[in-house]
Design a binder for these strands. Structure first.
Lengths: 240, 240
DNA sequence: GGGGTGGATTCATCTGATGATTGCGCCTAC
DNA sequence: GTAGGCGCAATCATCAGATGAATCCACCCC
């Protein structure tokens, strides 16, 4: 086992056995290096690795702290990994995303009564994208999309799905969906959707999902979300 | 942006734009450090971080290579992250696991015809655990479980779910399930199940799932897997 | 032709030093 | 007495150089 691995294992072990809790500050580099029996260089490599994983956070002039260990933080690096998959497993990734988002819609519908704020954000996101679609200069299906419109629709799409995930009230589920539907992946998708002139249809599908969620109709919400993402998958197959 | 981040971004960018493909060898540390404009120490921190993420692999005396970038490799660090969640989000994690495994069962049933080998391994895993249950000295429900039996049941459980995931033929899905149902998490679960004397029942549930999968009955496979994992979740709530 | 051996290459690790940033206590001015 | 500014100490960030360990590969001997 390399020195760096010893560092990573040592620090995670300290977190697991409770000697380091979220928010706690790690010993200074020199002391921690001595404790773990490695040099400062090796220690820094290990700490940096944990930093990339979102487990700790180093601040110059201050110290190194254990993060909150929130799922959203820790799953973030998975997004990078999804990017690296490239086109090879894009369809597989999206299949999993569809499964998870379907459950998100179902849970959000079940929780509709207690998730008013999150659902209001979902509503606002759809209003925003509707306004963009109504106000844009070029007609639907035009090849010369306004890049600003494109960006606005992408933002609204992300906001909509994120708000639904919050309404589902499962942070692990939300974090995974966020990681799987990465920004660049979505960027590619939306390009294809816009080129096919299907952005208005996407808007309608989003509206249908939200209607079912707001009505607390779990099954309809699930089916509509699944159908929506199957459409997206078709775009992946056809234009991806 | 720190130097190390520059290193991570630089290397991932090279992979994304195709100048580095899976299996390729990275330039030697000195050259790469010069290219990225950082010292060797900073370069090593960045490379080590990517190594922990499973993106690259350094071998002393040889060189540093881009890994296969298989989902199973890249999702592995997620397992560590799940461990760190501790009891806080255990139920949330398992809820997501249930969702994914339900889909695994469904896909495995759909693919039953073309996944004979994987399903044979699932069958073998169940035979193994059945033999363990039949041969064990202490009667069911005994508090004094044989640790060896406990370990054997755990192994068979892991093998069963893994074989099903292979039959589902979606590597991303399989990798996620593997990460979510980590070894130590399962260890805790099985302890609770054994103490409650429910290991025979678990065996029956596994058998029911496999029957439906082998019959190619997607819906029955899904329902039975979901029901099985709901049982497990009840143990989490009661004894976790 | 096959197997062993040596050198060259490359990563692994350590040591020491310097700069940048932050936090905190003290000190001064009002 | 209080508020604001200043300086010092602590800490991480980064660099440079040197040594050890593992691997690969070509060469040589048999």
């Amino acid at each position: 086992m390399s020195r760096t691995d010893r560092v990573v294992d040592g620090i995670t072990a300290m977190i697991l056995d409770g000697s380091l809790a979220p928010g706690d500050r790690l010993p200074v580099e020199k002391d921690l290096a001595a404790t773990l029996g490695v040099s400062r260089g090796s220690l820094r490599e290990g700490v940096r690795a944990l930093s990339v994983l979102g487990v700790v956070d180093s601040r110059q002039g201050d110290g190194t702290y254990v993060t909150s260990l929130d799922p959203s933080l820790l799953v973030a690096p998975l997004g990078l990994v999804v990017e690296l998959q490239g086109a090879g497993h894009a369809l597989h990734v999206h299949t999993v995303r569809r499964m998870l988002e379907t459950e998100v819609a179902g849970l959000a519908a079940s929780n509709a009564a207690g998730a008013g704020e999150a659902l209001a954000r979902a509503r606002a996101a759809l209003d925003s994208s509707a306004a963009t679609l109504a106000a844009r200069t070029s007609p639907a299906g035009g090849a010369a999309e306004d890049p600003a419109d494109h960006e606005a629709l992408l933002e609204a799409d992300i906001a909509f799905h994120r708000a639904l995930a919050e309404a589902a009230a499962n942070p692990v589920l939300g974090a995974l969906v966020e990681a799987l539907a990465g920004r660049t992946a979505r960027h590619r998708l939306w390009r294809g959707i816009a080129q096919a002139g299907a952005d208005e249809r996407t808007q309608d599908e989003h509206e249908a999902v939200l209607d079912a969620v707001l009505a607390g109709d779990t099954e309809r919400a699930r089916v509509r979300m699944a159908a929506h993402l199957l459409e997206v998958e078709d775009f992946l197959r056809a234009h991806g």
